[in-house]
Design a protein around this nucleic acid. Sequence first.
DNA 1: ATATTATACATGCATATACATATAAAACAA
DNA 2: TTGTTTTATATGTATATGCATGTATAATAT
Lengths: 140, 140
Amino acid sequence: MNTDYCFNLAMRKSSRLITQFYEERLSTLDLKVGQFSILRATFFKGSTTNKELQDILVIDQTTLTRNLKPLIRDGYLQLQPDPEDGRIKNISLSKSGKKLYLKALPIWEQTQKEVLNKIGNKQAQAVLDMSNTFVDVFKK
Amino acid sequence: MNTDYCFNLAMRKSSRLITQFYEERLSTLDLKVGQFSILRATFFKGSTTNKELQDILVIDQTTLTRNLKPLIRDGYLQLQPDPEDGRIKNISLSKSGKKLYLKALPIWEQTQKEVLNKIGNKQAQAVLDMSNTFVDVFKK
DNA sequence: ATATTATACATGCATATACATATAAAACAA
DNA sequence: TTGTTTTATATGTATATGCATGTATAATAT
């Protein structure tokens, strides 16, 4: 294995390309793919927190705080101060947020299938394996 | 192969993690990893253009234009209007740009080795293979 | 009980990302 | 040659990213 090729550039290139693919498909809903990920995680959790989403999405706290803003501003997410701990703001989907997620879901599913068809089973599995490895190895 | 897990989120998570790893190591030079990639590509090309860098780095034209700005501002890149074609600006490393790149190079090499040690030969090869597949499949 | 430390989230700053669009120059068509 | 199209780069706007730091609350130590 030589190290002539930058692993980081390889990842960033790939990330840009696949992101554009998803973005294009979600654009009919005026929804960014990062926003979809937040809606999806929140949907599964029912109620969640900034802290918990950081861990699920593997994203910096300050980045997440900002990424939540448009979704809150547009009324897709609602915040409730935690009754037990004044520092925590509980995050959940509003009615319109749930509606938007359920509208986005089939588009995302279709996009997933398209990606699978395009890159094939083996590469698709490699992507998920690599993601797990990276989380194991690099996540603090 | 099921498609429960978002390929895009997998890529974005991984990209964020590995980027942070490289950023941390390059931070002693006050250099971002995306900037390093630009310096590196320019170093190999000797003289290049926005257009050519777009293709090498697989990055949007408007993004690249903006990413070049700090490097031009800080004098690491110099621009020369092409004598043949008034639309083109030829990009090359300045003396300080070359110096910075050569200072960053051993840090990058060391980081590459660390990544290789951390993720192993097999995953490292998978990353490069995946990158090639993604470029083939998604790049316009 | 009060001082200290840890935790949860927010803000300042700088760079990164890309779509829609603008501008200018070159290539091409009539 | 003039009008049209294509090409190379730049700008407006909005979101994404994360380090350093700030603020408020909770937990812990003395």
